[in-house]
């Protein structure tokens, strides 16, 4: 899922200066799971903003709206008729889809969207995938060095790996240490001896903003048109 964390409240307050009507947008998908922007957080933010407005005479009128999934147009219809400012506690994707659907609104980010990861423990989320567009998990025992090695090395741990930890921080596991261990357990150490050549980064962000087309999923006409151009 997409991992996000709440922006510092003071930063949000500053961003909202000069607003009138404020809608706090919560999302029941990823940001709800990482406790940054679900229904409760939206309600809390809404109460907090109202309280601040009342204390400081900001004149804001604030209410929360929480949708199932802010990144799909069909799910953000509840925002129809909303005016003024939307403080999005959905991820950066959701915020942009809302902005696209409702160009007149001013959509502001209430969270910092960080990465694609998974919960590791209560309140702890760890990045797992960098979305490089060319998966090599079959070569690395199911552990992604692009996302989880601080240097995105493709050929084994650097000289900074010690006691299973990354040189960058004692809280960070060395991904390559994990890969070596995992391959040892699986009896596939031969994979480590193979040099992985320079990666083609075009399917990643380096190829420019990405557009993914699943031709089979396209409606008949556009599918035909697409195939004709291929």
């Amino acid at each position: 899922m997409i991992i996000a964390e709440r922006k510092p409240l003071t930063e949000v307050l500053e961003m909202l200066d000069g607003s009138g009507e404020i809608t706090v947008l919560g999302c029941r998908s990823c940001t709800a799971i990482c406790l940054a922007g679900g229904e409760k957080e939206a309600k809390e933010m809404s109460e907090a903003l109202s309280l601040h407005s009342e204390l400081k005479g900001k004149g804001w009128s604030v209410r929360p709206i929480t949708v199932e999934r802010a990144c799909e147009k069909e799910f953000i219809l509840p925002l129809q008729g909303v005016k003024g400012t939307v403080l999005s506690l959905a991820c950066g994707v959701g915020a942009q889809v809302v902005q696209e659907m409702f160009p007149m609104l001013q959509v502001l980010p209430g969270v910092n969207t960080s990465n694609m990861g998974a919960p590791e423990g209560i309140g702890v989320f760890v990045e797992k995938c960098a979305g490089c567009g060319d998966c090599i998990l079959h070569l690395t025992a199911g552990i992604c060095p692009i996302a989880r090695c601080a240097k995105s090395l493709l050929n084994g741990p650097c000289g900074g790996s010690q006691n299973g930890k990354c040189e960058v921080s004692p809280d960070t596991a060395c991904a390559w240490d994990q890969i070596v261990r995992s391959l040892t357990t699986q009896g596939r150490l031969d994979l480590l001896e193979r040099n992985i050549p320079p990666k083609d980064w075009r399917p990643s962000r380096s190829g420019g903003p990405r557009r993914t087309v699943n031709v089979e999923a396209m409606p008949g006409d556009s599918q035909k048109a697409w195939r004709d151009t291929e």
Partner: peptide
């Protein structure tokens, strides 16, 4: 008691 409820009480 949720955090929003406490904030609401202040309001």
């Amino acid at each position: 008691v949720e955090r929003w409820e406490v904030l609401h009480a202040f309001r």
